[in-house]
C-alpha cells in the first residue's frame, strides 16, 4: 500500500514509519515530505488534495499559540478532509509519545524512571483515558529535565542544547535508534490516548484498503 509520509523533522518521520510498520507490513513509503520543513500547516490543503491519489500520513506539532481546530479552519478553508488523509496535529509533541513508553525510554537513555512524568487520568462524560502530561513542551522537558540525569555521557552531549539552540547538536541521531529499535508502541499507547487514536486511524486506512 503506497503512502506519502509528512513530518516536520527526522524524528517525526521515523515515528510515522514505526507506526506504519506496527499497523501493517504492507506499507510502501513513496516519499518522505516535505522537502523543507516549516511550511507544513500552510500546505495542509495541498496534502489533502494529494491524498486523493495516495494516502498521506501527516504528523505535526502545535505551536504554543495555536490550537488544532483553529489551524484546520484557517488552512483548510472550508474544504472537507479526505478519508485518505491522516492528519495528526499533536497537542503535545511527538516526543511525548516516545516518553509514554516510560520503562524503555528510561532504560535506553539510562535515566531514572521517576524523572519521566506519570500519565494522568483524564475523565470526560463519555470516557476516561490516560495521557502524558508535561509541565511545558515535552521535547524541552526531555532535554532539560530528563536527559541531564542520564548515566551515559554521550546522550547528554548529543541531546542537550548548547546556548540558544533549540535542540542538541545530534538530537535526531540520538533519538532515531530508540524510535526504530526500542520504542514499545503497545506500552506507549496505554499511557497516551493521542497515540492510541493515531494508531486507530492508520489501522482504519489499512482495513479500507483490505476491503477494496
Amino acid at each position: 500500500m503506497n503512502v506519502y509520509i509528512v513530518g516536520e523533522d527526522q524524528a517525526a518521520r521515523e515515528i510515522i514509519k514505526r507506526l506504519l510498520s506496527f499497523c501493517s507490513d504492507d506499507f510502501n513509503i513513496l516519499m518522505e515530505l516535505p522537502a523543507r520543513g516549516g511550511e507544513i500547516k500552510k500546505m495542509l490543503i495541498n496534502y489533502n488534495t494529494l491524498s486523493l491519489k495516495f494516502p498521506v500520513i501527516l504528523l505535526m506539532d502545535l505551536d504554543d499559540k495555536d490550537c488544532a481546530p483553529v489551524i484546520i479552519n484557517q488552512y483548510f478553508k472550508g474544504n472537507i478532509k479526505n478519508t485518505q488523509f491522516i492528519l495528526n496535529i499533536a497537542i503535545d509533541e511527538v516526543e511525548a509519545w516516545l516518553m509514554a513508553d516510560r520503562e524503555n525510554f528510561a532504560n535506553y537513555y539510562r535515566v531514572p524512571i521517576t524523572s519521566i512524568p506519570e500519565p494522568k487520568l483524564y475523565r470526560t462524560i463519555k470516557s476516561s483515558f490516560y495521557e502524558m502530561y508535561f509541565p511545558y513542551k515535552s521535547s524541552l522537558f526531555m532535554v532539560k529535565e530528563i536527559i541531564p540525569l542520564s548515566k551515559i555521557k554521550e546522550f547528554k552531549e548529543q541531546m542537550i542544547p548548547s546556548s540558544n539552540a533549540k535542540k542538541g547538536k545530534e538530537y535526531n541521531t540520538a533519538l532515531t535508534p530508540f524510535i526504530k529499535n526500542h520504542w514499545n508502541i503497545k506500552n506507549a499507547m496505554n499511557h497516551s490516548d493521542s497515540l492510541y487514536r493515531m494508531i486507530n486511524r492508520i489501522k482504519k486506512i489499512v482495513s479500507q484498503y483490505q476491503t477494496l
Binding site: M31, L33, K53
Partner: peptide, 11 residues
C-alpha cells in the same frame, strides 16, 4: 506518478 501527484496537488 508519485512526483506528478505532488505537483498536481499544488506543490
Amino acid at each position: 506518478e508519485q512526483i506528478k501527484a505532488i505537483i498536481d496537488s499544488g506543490f
